[in-house]
Amino acid sequence: MAEAVSVELELHNEPLPMSAPFRIAGHVFEAMPATVVTLRDGAHVGRGEAAGVYYNDDHPDKMIATLEALRARIEAGIDRDTLRTLLPAGGARNALDCALWELESQRKGVPVWKLAGLEKVDRLLTTFTVGADDPSVMADRAAGYPQARALKLKLTGDPELDGARVRAVRARCPQAWIGVDANQGYNAATLPSLLPVLIEAGVSLLEQPCVRGREHILDGIERPLPFAADESILDLAELEARHHRFDVINIKLDKCGGLTEGLLMARRARELGKKVMVGNMCGTSLAAAPAFVLGQFCDIVDLDGPIFLVKDRTPSVRYEDGYITCGDEVWGPKTLA
């Protein structure tokens, strides 16, 4: 762990409008506001971006207030281990944790991925997400990702309509890997009728079928394909408590509170025999970059967030042939102040 050094803390929020409304079960997003943390020690800069966790009322204004309340403690010097005990999991801790990673990277002149224990980084096959809409519209959008090798479809909890959505996309994209995300939209009565349709369409993953806190409804339901936890498992403690009801753990840095916790979760999930997935909350490349490091340890990658924004940062992550690549110039030792 890096030595704690005194820093100057800068905080601001950014609106991050989306290029088009994005629908999931129970929500329509037109923007994904984010908090940006910048740490300066004079010669070096560390940055982190977080959107928070919308279903936990974890939003940028609250994140700013949380971090401002700790300004003196942060500026006096803090390390990542201390941060995990100082703040709960969520967006505020994520933004500060990622800023600490980049600050250490710049001070040591070493890429973040090396600090995370990697010998190299590889491009990652990523899913491209299709928001919930009419089946024909979703099929058009899916086909509109000519480079996509993997797709994630948002569902809304209506088995008949969701089934039509899945069939329509599969008909247009016969070769693509497909996962679906119910965003807590199903219950014990409706989920069994959806599962045969998913199997028929060759769907490879069902993400978050049930409401957070009601995971027990899954106990009597056969799992003919892997079930992934998103909202149900936020951090390391919840992984220990709820992993037995899921096959895949979707780790998002906004949920767990940063790359430090995310790496611990990935390691523990492996020990528990689970597959690991990385996702993000639709932020810019500054949010995708640390998630890309975590993605090196994952089986499934869902890091398409920047493509939904009106404007991304420069330099940015790159999408080519269905893969995401993130160079050190985006976040790490070569970043300019």
Rank of each mutant, 00 (worst) to 15 (best):
A291Q: 12
L263A: 06
N250R: 03
L259I: 09
A287L: 13
R270T: 14
V248A: 06
R313L: 15
A266N: 02
V310A: 13
L264P: 00
D304E: 11
D247L: 07
G258D: 05
G305T: 15
P306T: 13
F292D: 10
D304I: 09
G305V: 15
A289I: 12
L272F: 03
M277Q: 06
K311M: 13
V248T: 10
L253C: 02
C282L: 14
G262T: 08
K311S: 14
G279F: 02
R270V: 14
E261L: 01
E271T: 11
F297V: 02
D247H: 14
Q296P: 01
C256Q: 00
P290M: 00
T284D: 06
T284V: 09
N280I: 02
I307G: 05
N250S: 08
G262K: 06
I307F: 10
P306V: 15
M265R: 01
K275A: 13
V278Y: 08
C298Y: 10
G258F: 05
L259C: 01
E271K: 00
L264S: 05
K311F: 10
M277R: 07
E261F: 02
R268T: 01
F297E: 09
D254S: 10
G305M: 15
G257H: 08
L303F: 05
F297Q: 06
D312Q: 09
F297N: 00
G279M: 10
P315S: 09
A269M: 09
K274A: 01
R268D: 05
A289N: 09
L286A: 10
G295D: 02
T260I: 05
L259H: 08
L303E: 09
R268M: 01
F292A: 00
D299Q: 04
K275C: 00
M281A: 10
